[in-house]
Design a protein around this nucleic acid. Sequence first.
RNA 1: GGUGGGUUCAUCUAGUGGCCUAGGAUACCGGCCUCUCACGCCGGGUACACGGGUUCGACUCCCGUACCCACUACCA
Length: 505
Amino acid sequence: MSEKKVRVRFAPSPTGALHIGGVRTALYNYLFARQQGGELIFRIEDTDSNRFVPGAEEYIIESFRWLGIKFDEGVSFGGDKGPYRQSERREIYKQYVQQLLEAGKAYIAFDTPEELEAKRNEIQNFQYDARTRGLMRNSLTMSKKEVDDLIADGKQYVVRFKIEPGEEVLVDDLIRGEVRIKTDILDDKVLYKSADELPTYHLANIVDDHLMEVTHVIRGEEWLPSAPLHVLLYRAFGWADTMPRFAHLPLLLKPEGKGKLSKRDGDRLGFPVFPLEWHDPKSGEVSSGYRESGYFPEALVNFLALLGWNPGTEQEVFTMDELIKAFDISRCSKAGAKFDYKKGIWFNHEYILNSPAEKIAELFAPIVANNGIDATMEQVIKVTAMMKDRVNFVSELWPLCSFFFIAPEQYDEKTVKKRWKENSAQVMMELVDVLDGIDDFTIEGQEPVVMAWVQSKEYKLGDVMNAFRLCLVGEGKGPGMFDISAFLGKQETIKRIKKAVEVLG
RNA sequence: GGUGGGUUCAUCUAGUGGCCUAGGAUACCGGCCUCUCACGCCGGGUACACGGGUUCGACUCCCGUACCCACUACCA
């Protein structure tokens, strides 16, 4: 319809670490913006001064930097529609609140929280609306003078939106289709609080989205019930013709059991619910993050993108660019998705599989060094190339391949029992002689010679190789035997065999 | 309680009236590969919430019931 440039926003409250569901919402906004050639705005919704948590804003920005989700404007990103922090937009909101007041579309209410609480106890299912506002202390029931005097007196008040009953509001949702709600069941929402001179979410959201020329509001399903209120606000301001389109995303649910995904589920089942490690400044509590747990940002993004959306093809592994091309908001599912964290692990495995050994080795090298090993980068790359496809996380690499760098101190009991035969010691000593005679100790140099010897002696290949493995590794695991011996070199290989023969006899 | 949203394998999901004896992926189990352990490959399993319609025909459309989720704050 319109030729307007697509503009979307992600607007978190700085009340703590960014929840994984929020990350997904931001990702969908990003994919949509990029695909449409539009822009993504980062706005901070800090209209609740009581819930502000220091460091949260920086945490959120750093999270997106790590994930590769880039904003075009907003807090810390520049732009000419700022300020992008709602606490810095007080004067703007005041002006629009005034506009609503003057048009008779909102009114001032003096009821204290205690009075409201009393009313709720007095009347069951009490709701501040057309039926009850005549019973309350507000500018609808008081004279203008009374109201002016109270304000002049410094009495605290709120501004409430005057909802007219008897109407049906239509919300046209990109994911859910047409949702209709009767205004009778809506309450006169608080739009502004004089106490901190700040609006509530609803007012700030509409004013900012309008002023920032937002064209699509992509947010969590928890906002669906208040979407009609937002539609009504656009109308009250006379902005109905430029009202953004809405898309309400399904929620992320607990992996097992009922309810929405919480931090406790992560702690219990052993997966992070935050992108980065979070240190709560109040409680001092530390929560694990995907980054610190060894996930690749690309894998997390890929995993999250497929949780609640699918391309309609059988492709599952996507780069960010591929996601941008394939994304289609109308293909988002409507039902909440249980958080399938095991699939997230699989995605990480896929990324390791598809990454060159050099890249994984860069991450593995510090781990090798931390274990007190003085290895060259070339050695680390060699080991990584042999072992990386077997793990889900880089951190799993070391326990699997420390034997490349450290000779076994002891020999796994079960493997000894199974693989160390009567004549193993003798065969291994023969093998030492065979190996000692090989000048070219590469895989290609060793293999034919050793194989020929095994054949000539009519030994069983398995018996020789498994005993050989036990000598070099200390247990029955690892890549091909000649890969290991070639890496170790002639001297170390022979040394380990002799040591094993000595210990195992 | 009220309002809105939702309901396909254990899990994420494909499916827009006949292509569905319901497809893919994860997890699990089994096999293959093989000098071991993995990886990989191949294979396996009791899924359309239930009940009524509409229709020649329903997983797909309509109604009801059940269950789940969200919202119901001077929080977002």
